[in-house]
Every structure is written in C-alpha cells, then in structure tokens.
Amino acid sequence: MISDSGIDLGEMLHRSIKPDAGAVVAFVGVVRADPGVRAMEVEVYDEAAVEELRRIKDEAIARFGVSSVDVVHRKGRLSPGEVIVVVVCASAHRKEAFRACEYVIDELKRRVPIWKKELTEEGGRWVKGDAF
C-alpha cells in the first residue's frame, strides 16, 4: 500500500498476529538525518507501485511459506526521523519470516517505481536507488 499519511506500525503488527504465526518480523525504514538534508520528497507511480507490491507479496508468501505480508510505503514530503516504509511478515517460524521480510524490502527497492529527492538549503538532489 502507498500512503500520504503516517504509518501505524502497531496496527500492522496487530493484523499480523494470528494463532498460526509463531513469529512476526518487521522492517521499519526511517528517513536518515544526513548532513544538510532538511527533508525528503518521495514520488510514486501509484498504480504501478501497488500492482508490483502485490506481486512481491505473493512471491514472498509462495517462496517462504509465510502466512502474511503487509507493506506500507509513504509518499510526499518527509522529515528526517519519519518512518518511510514498513514491512511486516508473519510465519510459523522465525527464519521464514526474516527471509521473507528481507526479500520484500530488497525487491521493493529494486522493482517498485518510487523516487526520492533530498531537499537541502541549496536545493534538491535525487537519491540514486537500486533500480529507479
């Protein structure tokens, strides 16, 4: 899911906790406070991003046998310290949940059309991503 407002990590974790899940693993990405960076502008091709995220989630479930995968990525203007992305994976066992979580964030960075621009006092500069 793509959101232009805050991410409720507690709600995401709550949705993932089920009787068959012995492990829930979360990755929380935060906008770094790099020197001179005042904010980050995140642009997303929404329709393509949602579809690609759906494919990645389905792949993770099939590949690692996890019971659920939940992903939310922010868009818009974000300040250092704000949460930009959350991935939550639940499974019967921890190894599968960890592997699925890592797979999802790696594939998201590689395949989902999301662009980040660091805003500084001198202007803006696009951040080189894995794929975009």
Rank of each mutant, 00 (worst) to 15 (best):
Y45H: 15
R38E: 13
D20E: 15
V50N: 01
G6N: 11
A92H: 14
I84H: 05
H73K: 09
R99A: 13
E47C: 01
G22S: 07
V44C: 15
A39K: 13
V66L: 06
I56L: 01
P19E: 08
L9R: 07
M40W: 02
L53W: 01
S68N: 13
V86S: 02
V69Q: 05
G76C: 08
W126D: 06
E96I: 01
F64H: 15
E11P: 02
E41H: 13
D8K: 08
H73F: 11
E11K: 15
K57F: 01
I56E: 00
R38W: 02
A62Q: 15
R110L: 08
P35V: 10
L108W: 01
H73E: 06
L119N: 04
A62N: 11
R55A: 09
S3P: 07
E102M: 05
E96Y: 05
E52G: 00
V112G: 02
L78A: 06
A62V: 09
E41C: 04
A39E: 13
D4A: 11
R38G: 14
V104R: 08
E102Y: 08
E52H: 01
M12T: 10
K117Y: 08
S16F: 05
V86Q: 00
C101D: 00
D58S: 15
R32Q: 13
T120L: 15
G76W: 05
R77S: 12
C101K: 00
A26V: 14
G6C: 06
K116E: 03
